[in-house]
Amino acid sequence: MTLQETGVAAETAAAQPAPLLSLDGVSKVFNGDLVALKGMSLDVFQGDFVSLLGPSGCGKSTALRLIAGLSHPTSGRINWAGGQDAGDLGVVFQEPTLMPWATVAQNVWLPWRLRGAKFAAMKPQIEEALALVGLEKFMDSYPRELSGGMKMRVSIARALVTNPRLILMDEPFAALDEITRHKLNNDLLALRAKIGCTIIFVTHSVFESVFLSSRIVVMAARPGRVIHEVAVDAPYPRGEDFRTSTDYAAHCRAASAALHDAIGD
């Protein structure tokens, strides 16, 4: 386990092909003087599971919004390998963010619908995405008929349905109870193993970030910035064995130390 200083992305990049996404000295300033993010550099490679870990106000969500194109950097650049298209991204928010007036299938259809695709033509993809999250039998249900965990699965299915190059997840399991969260963490890794997607995952939880990620980017607040990167080199697939292993505990200790450094304890 190594605790690396920021800017280490360059080292990783040297050993790998060109990054899928790279942030190059990205800063975001609000109202002229509120520095939400300062000089963030990060390379995300195909198949990475990168967690952004840090206290509130450290710019995790700002970074995600910038990557999603919902906001533009004040300075610095965000580069996509081969340019960006609307279907390149899948997004999962902290809340399931489903349309309550639409059925599960219609919710999952949304990214395609906005690209002009008919429901009938997309039905196989919708079914497949729902099958991946184990909800193929709930296509005609309304969100209110589902539990919190099931709603989140629908949200994940919607993010997957266009087969995006990158999935952004902004504390998706934070509002769920511990048991559901535990289960969805396992399911997310199983899903990733099946479809090999690249994920940027925002979280407050050291344990969650260690269990899920291949790399943890630790951020500090005021101004929001990257201060450490922790590589979680345990192999996938990871299951209950990993959760109870000394390796997991060691990674948690390292991530925790980096987080304390970020908080300034």
């Binding site: 919004r65 999603a68 194109g69 919902l70 609307a86 991204l89 997004v91 928010f93 809340e95 963010t97 349309m99 949304l110 990214p111 906005l114 690209r115």
Partner: peptide, 17 residues
């Protein structure tokens, strides 16, 4: 819902959509 608004923007929805 503001998250849904963001989602529509991310997926490149037009004003009409």
């Amino acid at each position: 819902d503001h998250n849904l608004r963001d989602l529509f923007s991310i997926y490149g929805a037009t004003r009409w959509q």
